[in-house]
């Protein structure tokens, strides 16, 4: 009896089991399904140009999904993330235009604004102890209103003025919104930003102290505090990371289109959350992966472009998305249930 127990106890988990433990499994299966599905239904999606477009679509969402996923693993939401992107773009554009400065000054100002919004969200959360759903719902509505009101106040219009003739525009554009050629196909620099952020986010999460703290504050904040994890700094820092992503995303939009529509961004915050959840992030925190969120964003890109290439009514896009969300979360749940069962003692 005892020897049998002992041999069970030292049994190693198989590598399949270790693979299935990864949070990304559900999204990986989902991504395979949509890629195969649309490759068959819309063969033109396999052309290099289409692949580049799909990746570009994925990156516009994926950049924000990095910050949102980290925040979700840390146990919080940010409903203001969608409009905060627009706020950042508006801030850069209007600051530079109205003061007639070099565009880069506006870009720097926007970075401060974005980080300040993140810090405000985080500070409000830890000071009041309210759920982040409520806190960021408040800032979401405030930013949505302020975007429109301030833009109208400053420009007398609902969009900002074209800044493409201003000093520094070209260099800023080449950083945030240029394209480069890979084997005859134009590829957006936005994809590089996305990949770099995913790599950075993954490294922070899995290989730094801060990453350990993010898992801990999301998994059990009381325990984390008891062993000396700086909870307040971690949470505020996470909201500021979302701010940083919003800045990168906002700068891309600004230099891609030269002007900003002040009413944009509404509803995108939910798409970021969908990408993170499809990617295996637990809605309640403490579990998840940045790579998963990137795969979630990729599913988004494939579906949104796949519907176009298959020549379907684009109305079906949201339907597919909802189905993917349910499917991926169900797979995640089932897999975790199977793998996390206590081993027979």
């Amino acid at each position: 009896m005892t020897s049998q127990l002992a041999s069970q106890r030292v049994a190693r988990r198989s590598s399949l089991r270790i693979f299935l433990m990864r949070p990304e499994v559900g999204s990986l299966i989902g991504a395979l399904i949509v890629v195969v599905f649309f490759s068959v239904m819309a063969p033109s999606i396999r052309h290099p140009g289409s692949v580049s477009t799909v990746l570009y679509q994925s990156s516009t969402l994926g950049i924000m999904a990095v910050g949102v996923a980290l925040l979700m693993i840390g146990g919080e939401f940010d409903l203001s993330a969608g409009v905060a992107v627009i706020t950042s773009a508006l801030a850069a554009s209007m600051f530079a235009y109205q003061l007639g400065t070099n565009v880069w000054v506006g870009v720097g100002f926007a970075l401060l604004v974005s980080l300040a919004i993140g810090a405000f969200n985080g500070w409000l959360l830890v000071r009041t102890g309210l759920p982040s759903f409520l806190v960021t719902l408040g800032t979401f509505l405030m930013l949505q209103g302020a975007n429109l009101a301030v833009t109208r106040l400053v420009t007398g219009n609902v969009a900002t003025n074209d800044i493409s003739n201003m000093a520094g525009f070209n260099s800023a554009r080449s950083i945030f919104a240029s394209t480069f050629n890979v084997g005859g196909t134009d590829v957006s620099v936005s994809i590089l930003w996305w990949l770099a952020l995913v790599a950075l986010g993954t490294w922070i999460l899995l290989r730094t102290r801060v990453g350990n703290w993010i898992f801990a504050v999301g998994g059990n904040a009381r325990s984390a505090r008891a062993v000396g994890v700086p909870i307040v700094q971690t949470k505020v820092g996470l909201f500021m990371a979302v701010g940083l992503c919003a800045w990168i995303s906002g700068m891309h939009q600004l230099f891609e289109y030269n002007t900003v529509q002040s009413g944009g961004g509404v509803g995108l915050e939910l798409e970021y959350i969908v990408a993170a959840v499809v990617g295996g992030c637990l809605l309640t925190g403490g579990y998840g992966s940045v790579i998963g969120a990137a795969i979630g964003a990729l599913i988004f890109g494939v579906v949104s472009q796949g519907v176009v290439y298959a020549d379907w009514n684009p109305d079906w896009f949201k339907f597919f998305l909802g189905a993917m969300l349910l499917l991926a979360t169900l797979v995640n749940m089932l897999v975790r249930h199977q793998v996390n069962r206590k081993q027979p003692a």
Binding site: N212, F215, A216, N220, S223, L282, G286
Partner: peptide, 9 residues
């Protein structure tokens, strides 16, 4: 009592 452990880590 709750051991200050984070279950999923």
């Amino acid at each position: 009592q709750d051991l200050a452990l984070v279950p999923l880590m």
